[in-house]
Simulated scan of single mutants.
Amino acid sequence: MAEAAMAGSDSLWQKVRDEAQRSANADPVFGKAVAGAILAHDDFAAALADLIGRRLASNATERVRFMAFCRAAFGGEPDLIEAAGRDLLAIARRDPAVADLLPPLLHYKGYIALQAWRVSNWLWRHDHRDAALLFQNEASNLLQVSIHPTASIGSAVYLDHATGIVIGANVVVGDDVTILQNVSIGRSSELPARSPRIGCGVYIGAGASILGDISIGDLAKVGAGTVVTSDVPAGCTAVGNPARLTNCPESASAA
């Protein structure tokens, strides 16, 4: 598993470096920034640790500290880098505004916030809970994305626009999920206080709220501004407040 992760990240890293070199050659002014952020590093993990440190830290000392936590996480669990690569590729596939890997890596705060969460989750699982919460707090303050370290998130996940996103404790998010701005996913006020489970391939529109002990099935869609407090079967679309189901496949309608 670790060897496959390394091979995948190496291939992606070479693509990123090639793009960075072309950008540096085309624009000498921007090239200086690209050289420091990308070309100065030996691998994807080192560049990503540096980018997270740059975005979360307010001074050089804090930057070094954040980078050290990132390097520990990436070195201790190479699958984190594989997941980060899949997240980056997902943006290039789903965002019609970009075709390359370098722009979202350098400029999309949702991407950096998600990778900061991956580090915070690793820290939480390894009993560095104060450090994990520090990552969450700084990502919330500076990137407007708050993901609790105890959440569980798959790969190829895209946080589009990524302002005002809140993913609470113990929320489960599957692979290939797209989440737009101002989305809240977390517990409801009802007891027992349990968190939502989001399946694979789900699309969640801007301003949606998904609350409580519920499941959103694979390939379901949640419309903008929808408030979901009960299950959404696989393949269905939920719209409105309170949510109502539409466009369900026949199997879901029968159930």
Rank of each mutant, 00 (worst) to 15 (best):
Q144R: 09
L180K: 02
T150I: 00
P249I: 07
L114R: 03
A57V: 04
P149G: 04
L12C: 05
A193P: 01
L88A: 10
P192S: 07
I153A: 02
G212A: 14
A243C: 10
G201N: 00
V227Y: 02
R187S: 12
V228Y: 07
L123Q: 06
D95G: 01
D95Q: 02
C248I: 08
E3R: 15
D231Y: 09
P149N: 10
H41P: 04
S155V: 10
D87Q: 13
A90F: 02
M67D: 06
L114T: 05
W124E: 12
A47P: 06
W13V: 11
D42L: 04
A139G: 05
V232S: 09
D160R: 07
V64D: 15
A60P: 02
S195F: 03
P149Y: 00
G207K: 05
A24N: 11
I52H: 07
D87C: 04
V34S: 00
K15C: 12
G225L: 01
N170W: 01
A24P: 13
F44R: 00
G8H: 10
L142W: 10
D175T: 12
Q14W: 09
T163V: 15
R55A: 14
P104E: 03
G75T: 12
M67R: 15
L102V: 09
P104L: 05
D43I: 01
G205K: 10
P149E: 00
I91H: 13
A5C: 13
H107G: 03
S11K: 13
A60I: 10
V145H: 00
L56E: 03
L80T: 00
L102Q: 01
I210H: 01
S189F: 06
R93H: 15
I52E: 08
G186Y: 13
Y111W: 12
D95S: 04
R94F: 03
D27A: 04
V145N: 06
R86T: 09
T178W: 00
I153H: 03
V157T: 02
R63S: 02
A238T: 07
A131H: 11
G75I: 11
V29H: 12
G75M: 11
R71T: 11
D130M: 09
D218I: 09
D213C: 06
M67F: 00
S209K: 15
G85Q: 12
V222C: 01
V177Q: 06
A40K: 15
A116V: 10
D176I: 03
G240A: 08
I216D: 07
I216M: 07
E19S: 05
A90E: 06
G8V: 00
A84V: 05
M67W: 04
D10F: 08
R197A: 12
N59F: 10
S188M: 09
R118Q: 05
R22Y: 06
V183N: 08
I52V: 13
A26P: 01
H148L: 14
L133A: 10
W124S: 11
L51D: 05
I214W: 03
S120K: 06
G174T: 07
G31D: 05
K109T: 04
S146Y: 05
I165N: 13
P28Q: 08
S11Y: 01
L123N: 06
